[in-house]
Design a protein around this nucleic acid. Sequence first.
DNA 1: TAGATTGTTAATCGATTAACAATC
DNA 2: TAGATTGTTAATCGATTAACAATC
Lengths: 214, 214
Amino acid sequence: MIARKNYITRLSQYKSALYRFERLGFIKIFSDYLAESVGVTSAQVRKDFSIFGIHGNKRGGYQISTLIEKLNDILGKNEVQRVVLVGGGSLGSALMKYKNFEKEGIKITAVFDIDPAKYNAKLSVPVLPVGEMEQFVKEHQVKIGILCVPDVAAQPMLDLMIKAGIKGVLNFAPMQLKTTDSCVVSDVNLEVELENLIYFVNASERAGKIEHAP
Amino acid sequence: MIARKNYITRLSQYKSALYRFERLGFIKIFSDYLAESVGVTSAQVRKDFSIFGIHGNKRGGYQISTLIEKLNDILGKNEVQRVVLVGGGSLGSALMKYKNFEKEGIKITAVFDIDPAKYNAKLSVPVLPVGEMEQFVKEHQVKIGILCVPDVAAQPMLDLMIKAGIKGVLNFAPMQLKTTDSCVVSDVNLEVELENLIYFVNASERAGKIEHAP
DNA sequence: TAGATTGTTAATCGATTAACAATC
DNA sequence: TAGATTGTTAATCGATTAACAATC
């Protein structure tokens, strides 16, 4: 069974909130409190859990530690996920230093670039020529790649990643890339996110108050 | 009327695809071709346009230039949008250099940080102390802010942004922030995106082939 | 004219919410 | 026991798709 994206996004949000509660020393949690911290209804939380076979205690709520374990199980996150980064530009470097990945068990193992000036195999996260990607991916059994190269390079670079055996790509180039059955591509489009925001700000200014249609 | 996020996201994607077609020299486009380039059905495209009062020519399709104009109109993008960036760390610096914003009429006008070592008012995009944010925002009539500070700083910094008069915030901290009626907060959560991807890769490996449930 | 594409209506599909019986 | 919370069913709501009449 493969769940839809909405469900997985929420499970992921629950998990992240639960880690925070755990750090604060909480042991148990009720659906309504968890719901509030993620911004959904408590019925939604219970429904989601029920769909994935997660059960709590009537009147007792859910135990946080077992909840996290089950969520990690469903999300396939019970071992550290190795990821490669393609494109060592400014966005790539920023993601390399991004602390929150490690916290969630995501480890960037190498960066691939086409600029020889950037190559450095000695770094803790080595920067390597794209030509070495296929071998590296096979050797280290990497399945996930993050693609942050200039727009024109995105498609050819994705093709190389697929050839190297990558199975899932997080794409930062603002365009629809052509992929194959063997590889899932998921897009992060920062312009679209900003445009959305701009729209809502302008629209609510115009409207004064928020109504909904459609 | 304020449309839901889905609609605006698609309009934004149509627009971005249309710019690409325009650059390639196309003058007209049919709903099915536009649909394909964005990854939706042609019925979806026509429905979306119809909802927002965009009309084409029966048998003649849509004229790209007028289509772009109308979409920009709806999205409130017919003038350059000024944006401030809060947090001059690696992600902030990367976004500062991000080329695609300017292409879409989004201009980062200043960066605010708490680290005096980073201050430099002489740069084309000045780096200023957060204490100067309120005055700057008022003077330059900025409505949108991008928030990329460490997790613990996110909430207090958002409070400052709201106080400064910011109306919409794109938040990169992986947590639900408390906002007010006067300010919309939209989240970009890279961990959640990656977890989604990891789930789908693992799930489709397990399943061999994709089925859908729920 | 014949053919192709839009625009819209109706049908379907899926996601969310409400409500409440079960039960700890 | 009384009270509170889960788990699930049914109702609602919204989004997508199919289909086709209108028409260029």
